[in-house]
Design a protein around this nucleic acid. Sequence first.
RNA 1: GCUGAAUUCGUCUAACGGUUAGGACGGCAGAUUCUCAUUCUGCAAAUAGGGGUUCGAUUCCCCUAUUCAGUACCA
Length: 510
Amino acid sequence: MERKVRVRFAPSPTGPLHIGGVRTALYNYLFARRNGGDFILRIEDTDSQRFVPGAEEYIIESLKWCGIQVDEGIEQGGPHAPYRQSERKEIYLKYALQLVESGNAYYAFDTPEELNALRAEAEKNGGTFAYNYQVREKLATSLHLSAEEVKERIERGDHWVIRFKMPVNEEVHMNDLIRGQVTINTSTLDDKVLYKSADNLPTYHLANIVDDHLMEISHVIRGEEWLPSLPLHYLLYRAFGWSDSQPEFAHLPLLLKPTGQGKLSKRDGDKMGFPVFPLQWVSPTTGETAHGYREDGYFPEAFINMLALLGWNPGTEQEIFSMEELIANFSLDKVGKSGARFSPDKARWFNAQYMHHRDNEELGRLFLPILHEHGVKACIFLATKVAAIIKTRATFISDFWDLSYFIFIAPTEYEQKTIDKYWKGDNPAHVAHVRELLAGVGDFTKENTEKTVLGWITENGLPMGQIMNAFRLAVIGVGKGPDLFDICGVIGKEETLRRIDRALEVLNNR
RNA sequence: GCUGAAUUCGUCUAACGGUUAGGACGGCAGAUUCUCAUUCUGCAAAUAGGGGUUCGAUUCCCCUAUUCAGUACCA
C-alpha cells in the first residue's frame, strides 16, 4: 500500500515558464522532499508546432535559480530515461494500438479541414461541435468502416488519428486531494485524439498517462486547468488496466492578474511593471524582452517564499520561510481551493524582508559592480560597511546607489531646500564647533563621535534638530540618508573634517 | 452556450458547527529619530445574496449571482 512518492513537473517548452508554472514546480518539489520522494522533470514536447528554441534551457535554469533540485530529468538522467517525450516517441504508438484492440479507441480519418468545417457549421447554427458518441458513428472511423477498408486507408497513407472511445452516460467519480470528490457524466465529454499520424506523436493525454505510469508517478500535482481532463485520464488508466497503480491527483488553484480579470498572463507584467517570469526572457522570434525576477533584483529565497504563500499557508502566522522550513511544513491539504491574485506589493515586501536580514558582506559583494559602474573605486570592505547601514532602507540591491552615493562622492553642491531651512542663524557657527569637537576625537567610531557631539548639544541646551541637519548638509549635501554618525564612521575622520571645511567655506561665502 | 471548479477585509489568507471572525500586505494616524527609511503602537476594512438543517452556522445542504477554467490532430 505504501508507495514511494514520485512526482513530476512536466512543462511544455513553448516559451518561458511563468510564475504559475514555477509555483507548480515548487509545490511538487516541496511535496516530494516532505515525503522523502523523488522530483522528476519531464519535458512534454509532443507539439512540434509550438516548440520554442531556448525554452527548455530556460526552464532548467529557472528551477536552478529557485533552488528546486531535480532528481531525475533530462540533465541528470535516471532509471526511466529519456525524459524528453520527443525522444520516447516510439513507445506511444504501441499503447494507442493496445487501446484500439481492446475497443477503447478507434481510428478516425477526418482531416483537420473537415473538422474545421464541421465546427464552423455548428457555430453558425448557434451550437458547438463536439466529436462525441453522437457523431462518431457518422464520420469516417474504424467503428463502422470494414476492417479491410481501415487497413487499406492506413496502408494507402491516408491521414488518421486514434481517438478515445468515450463511454456513454457513465458517472465517473474522481478524487482530488485538494477539492475532494468530483463527479462527471461521460456523455458531456468528447472523444479526444490520443495519437496522430501526421507527426507520429501522441497528444498530451496519451503521452502523459503512459509516461506517468511508466515512470511510476505516485502523485500528479498540476494546475487547475487540467481538472476538466481528469475524467479522461481516469478512463485511460482504466482502459489500460492500470487503475490500481493510478496516481493520486491534486489540482492547484490558478494565479490571477493583480487587477481585473483572468489568469495571469505574459502581458500583465509589462503592463503593470512587475515580472511574470522568474528569469528575463528574450523572444527568439520577436526579440522582445520580458522582465524576470532575477534580473529585477529579487533574491530567489524571497521569490520562492512569496510564491509558496500564494495559495498555500501552514495555518500559523509565520510568513518568512526558508526552503527547508517550507519543506518541513508543506502539505497539500493546506493548499487553498480558489485562485490567488498575485500582489506586486507583497512581492516587494518579501524581498525587503530578506534584504534586511542579508549578510552585510554578501550585500557588499553585490554592491561592488554597481559602484564600479558609477565610477567609484571602492573595495569590498567599504562596500560592506555601507551595505550595513543602508540595507534596512532598501528593497533591491539596485536601490543601493541612490541610498548611498553621497557617502562615496563628497558634495560639490548643496541642496537649496535644506540650505534655506537649516543653514541660518547660529547653525553655521555650531557646525564649525562640531568640526573642532570631531577633530579632537581620537578613535573615530560612531559611538565616540555621537557621544561627543550629542553630549555637547544636550549639555548646552542647544537645538538638536537645527545643528544636526546643518551638520548633515555639510557632510553629504542633502537632507536625507542614514544615521549621520554612521556615515562619518564610514568615511573617516579626515574626510569628515575636509567635507565640513569645504561646506563652511562654500555655504558661508554664498 | 455546455461542463466543471471556486466565492472571508482592496489583496494573500486563518478560523475543519460555538472566536469581540485572527494575521500579513497595502492605506491612514501616532511614537521613536538629526533627515529619509527601518522599527513599534493604534485605526478603518470581510464571511456574495436567498432559503434550509441545527440550540447554534464563515463552516453542512439547496437555489441564485459572480468569477475562473475547459470545451484543439496545444499543453
